[in-house]
Design a protein around this nucleic acid. Structure first.
Lengths: 182, 182
DNA sequence: CAGAATTTACCAAACGTTCGGTATATATTT
DNA sequence: AAATATATACCGAACGTTTGGTAAATTCTG
């Protein structure tokens, strides 16, 4: 099993248990590799695994969510495209956001910088599209923040209420909320 | 040191580290009690500690956030009152929400029911006020959900961006967002 | 055969938890 | 009031288990 195949499995464990709850044993069970074998690909252990997974996640974010924002369609269409991919990215709200999980406890100090960068990149990309749609730059930035707030909050509520309807509704109303006249 | 004095200290550890990251040693350091002494108040250990803390949190939620919603002021004033207390409750966004943290990993299965109840209670209380303000019942429920979504999402972003300005802004614009004409 | 991949065997440290016990305070009995 | 019993609060030491991690040996692959 190649390193590239292992990474998504590690990610899934991190997404389910958070950083401190994700144990090497759980990684072993998820990948089928013995605990020691994981140290072949990740000599620095758990923190390196999380760092690599975080890079992988950031790459996926860029390709799956941010790239559609840079197409030559209309701003509205581009936001709708991202939205659709957000739905898939978080598996209709059933998958926790790693960026949120890695902001907790021990992980917060370790990965704050990378998490912050990823979130800001997302916000900036969205704000750019909103500005192209004619929204004032400062308002565009705020609305972009609001979008991420709503996505993250919807994920929290999905877990807490054990029900994806809120996530779907939030996602559906997001494009018109973002593009409403000022 | 009485049990009542210990509970808030345990809560603070849970809020900082999540369920799996909160260790008995950290509880010991936070309270000043030795590890074994904690089992005097909580014979069933960590899970009981979290359960008691969750009850305590739910009580605080009722008293500090939901009670103001049942005053005889105008709906707008009541929402503003809750809002102000939300700000204090989460220490201007610097304090993570326990309900969100206890929805992760191992804790999810253990406390899902209590978390779900608390969130639904919050949403229902808000929806009632919005209905009193003349909002259609179904829309009131949705807007109440949106409010919790925004609060939770703002907390996530506050951690991720390491910056409370988003939280403050979201909170400030919440009353008029909730009470906007349909 | 060489190198990469994987395993077995092992470790110290931390985990949550239990045990046996000591003070100190509060009731109960004489 | 003094003596006795009971409960509360707390702790040191150890329990068995799991943690993250290492070293050496083996299997697989080009």
């Amino acid at each position: 099993m190649s390193k590239a195949e292992v990474i998504p499995q590690l990610m899934s464990v991190f997404q389910q248990y958070g950083y401190e709850g994700a144990s090497i044993t759980r990684f072993s069970e998820a990948t089928g590799l013995k605990r020691a074998s994981l140290y072949h690909y990740f000599p620095n252990g758990k923190s390196e695994m999380a760092a690599v997974v975080l890079n992988y996640l950031t790459q996926a974010l860029k390709e799956q969510l941010l790239a559609p924002l840079r197409s030559d369609n209309s701003p509205a269409d581009r936001i709708r495209a991202m939205n659709q991919n957000v739905d898939a990215f978080y598996q209709h709200g059933q998958q926790d956001c790693l960026l949120a999980l890695l902001s907790i406890g021990e992980a917060h100090e370790l990965f704050q910088e990378q998490v912050q960068q990823a979130l800001n990149l997302w916000i900036d990309s969205l704000a750019t599209v909103l500005a192209e749609a004619g929204i004032t730059p400062t308002a565009a930035r705020q609305r972009a923040e609001d979008a991420i707030v709503q996505i993250q909050g919807a994920l929290v509520l999905t877990r807490g209420l054990n029900n994806t309807t809120t996530f779907e509704r939030i996602l559906n109303q997001l494009p018109e909320t973002l593009l409403r006249p000022e």
